[in-house]
Design a protein around this nucleic acid. Structure first.
Length: 590
RNA sequence: GCCUCGGUAGCUCAGUUGGAUAGAGCAACGGUUUUCUAAACCGUGGGUCAGGGGUUCGAAUCCCUUCCGGGGUACCA
């Protein structure tokens, strides 16, 4: 309805002899309780008209009705000018824009963006927090693709470090040669089991040392197990054959497990990076920073950057002994990734506990004069909390990803069979459907919430299948598909001649018309949440429409039927496309 | 202490660059099926938008301040 802006500008020019910027014309959708579809907020214009809001609104309203064909009526409520737009305008928009096959499809914009997500540690299975990360990363990737980007999905696997050694050591000591095959356990779960055992034994040692009079900190440092784990890490770094071989074996177990989880979640990657290959990177960058005077060396030889002028602290970038810290390798990895792909933008999907780290990382790269540093973005998301607090892998208070997926599918199976809708499905189709619905519920549940907000998950209350949920939207889609097939739908662009479209139908056109803009908004914000809520609103409108109009299948052939079917078809198309961006499949039947 | 992100109905969440009487879902209660899928639809109740102050014709939204919660805070990742 952009034509209203220009028309209003013209109205102001003719009525008050003044040219105004577009930004002065504030147009919004008319609230449901008032008549009309578009509303001009006239308060800002009263400064120009030098008249009361009501009078100004009336004058502009009269002008628009007289001079703009598609504005048929107006009414004024306080300072709000409500305009009624001709039905034919919306029908035309529907037929000529919305019904086009490429509606909502953005042409390639020639830009390349990397999305790094998942980035698991290889010492334990994935939990609900990782699920949020994976779904968010995948969905943002799809969103950016839909918006025209060339997207590279990357997984930087944290496959080395003291945490891995903990699992390895515990397995050596107490594993009795267990393997995924011998136990029937998924590889990541087997390794995770030993991570938990390590922690339990480690705590016992700490308690014993504390009983001997050591402080908590001393005990944590002096416990034999942790020392042994550190020894192991050293050996790994020296390439000790036995340690490296065990490391390889156990990592393979974990990868086999992760692959199953990734497959079930429906996420994928174009490229894997491994920290075992990147953890030594960054020293060159440190040299460069020293040469450029961005970094400075302290007496002990450690290298620092002073960010106090930027409101941050001094930050260590290289230890006195020349070894790397986290940010060292991230500096190096950032350069490597840029060298590999030369992308315009790079998005790190990482939890908000690393906000500070990424702030520093990006700032350093900027200070080093990297032209691409401004294209870096930390997509920070809130933790998933349980009713009794945070999830902790070591303490076993986690919602395991595999178990969660399994239980969602089971719930979907139970609910569907209860409704008796799949009696004529093949076993194969049934399982696929239950998976789609269960995961649809889970994905929508996690993605509809704004990423930066933390999210509460109560395992005792299963995720809903009714109301503002994935299955609700999926159901709407399936219902439309059924309607289309029963009415032997044939696509044909309708006529604009008939009149009498209902309030809901008008609302649906308006809602559908928003779809391309919704993609843009979500993509620019790197947030699928608004898209999820948009799809829900759309589905809700369809259900209302479906309920209000007489059965379409039985309607006589003609313009009305064609229009309603077109409206239904397009709704299904938009739901399907939008849900795919969320990583959710919309079944044809359910 | 400092930095940062949050606080909206009993619960989980929406709420565009400030716009009209703050919206959904769940839960509770009531209703709708001889008609295209009732995982649906319609209705009722439920609010000091954490508190206070300010800017403005107009504030959940912007500014200041206090309180509560999460996270971070120089050699973990």
């Amino acid at each position: 309805m952009n034509f209203i802006i220009a028309a209003t500008q013209k109205a102001i020019l003719e009525l008050y002899q003044e040219e105004v910027a577009e930004s002065v014309i504030n147009i919004q959708e008319t609230r449901k309780e008032f008549e009309g579809q578009a509303t001009i907020v006239v308060f800002p214009i009263t400064k120009i008209s030098k008249k009361s809001p009501e009078q100004t609104a009336n004058e502009i309203g009269e002008y628009l009705v007289a001079n703009v064909a598609d504005v048929t009526k107006f009414n004024v409520v306080k300072g709000f000018l409500n305009l009624s737009i001709a039905e034919s305008y919306f029908l035309k928009q529907f037929n000529e824009e919305i019904l086009k096959p490429d509606f909502g499809v953005y042409a390639p914009n020639g830009k390349k963006v990397m999305v790094e997500y998942s980035s698991p540690n290889t010492n334990k299975p994935l939990h609900l927090g990782h699920v949020r990360n994976n779904l968010l990363g995948y969905s943002v990737s799809e969103l950016l693709k839909a918006y025209g980007y060339d997207v590279i999905k990357v997984n930087l696997v944290n496959d080395r470090g003291i945490h891995i050694c903990k699992s390895m050591l515990a397995w050596q000591k107490w594993g009795n040669g267990e393997t995924p095959e011998s136990t029937g356990l998924k590889g990541d779960h087997l390794v995770g089991k030993y991570y938990v055992i390590f922690d339990k034994e480690y705590k016992k040692e700490i308690d014993a040392l504390k009983a001997e009079g050591q402080s908590e900190d001393e005990a944590k440092k002096n416990a034999p197990l942790i020392k042994e784990a550190q020894q192991m890490l050293l050996k790994w770094e020296q390439g000790d054959e036995e340690v490296v071989s065990l490391w390889k074996t156990m990592n393979e177990w974990v990868y086999a497990g992760f692959n199953i989880t990734y497959k079930n979640l429906g996420v994928d990657f174009d490229k894997f990076y491994y920290e075992s290959n990147t953890y030594l990177l960054g020293k060159g960058t440190v040299e460069e920073g020293l040469a450029k005077g961005v970094f400075f060396k302290k007496e002990d030889g450690s290298v620092w950057i002073d960010l106090t002028a930027d409101g941050l602290d001094q930050k260590l970038v290289l230890r006195a002994d020349g070894t790397s810290v986290y940010i060292t390798q991230d500096l190096g990895t950032a350069e490597m990734k840029h060298d590999d792909f030369n992308m315009d933008e790079s998005i790190y999907v990482v939890g908000n506990e690393q906000d500070y780290h990424f702030k520093v990382l990006f700032l350093i790269l900027e200070k080093l004069g990297k032209s691409w540093a401004k294209g870096l973005y930390h997509l920070s998301y809130g933790m998933v909390d349980l009713p009794n607090g945070k999830m902790k892998s070591r303490e076993g208070t986690v919602v395991d990803a595999d178990e969660l997926i399994e239980s969602m599918v089971t719930t979907a199976r139970e609910k569907t069979e209860e409704l008796g809708k799949t009696n004529d499905f093949s076993e194969e189709d049934k399982e696929e459907l239950y998976k789609n619905i269960g995961l649809g519920a889970l994905k929508y549940f996690l993605l509809k919430v704004e990423p930066k907000k933390r999210l509460l998950f109560n395992p005792a209350e299963s995720i809903d299948f009714q109301g503002n949920t994935g299955p609700f939207i999926q159901y709407t889609h399936a219902r439309i598909k059924s309607l289309l097939s029963k009415s032997n739908y044939q696509f044909a662009v309708g006529s604009e001649q008939f009149s009498g479209i209902s309030e809901v139908e008008l609302e649906m056109i308006l809602q559908l018309a928003k779809y391309p803009e919704e993609i843009a908004i979500a993509a620019k914000a790197y947030s699928p949440a608004s898209l999820a809520n948009y799809l829900y609103e759309l589905a809700k409108l369809f259900n209302k429409f479906y309920h209000e109009v007489p059965p379409i299948v039985k309607t006589e052939e003609g313009e009305v039927k064609q229009f309603r079917l077109n409206l239904s078809k397009k709704t299904a198309d938009v739901i399907n496309a939008g849900m795919l961006i969320l990583g959710i499949t919309s079944p044809e039947r359910m």
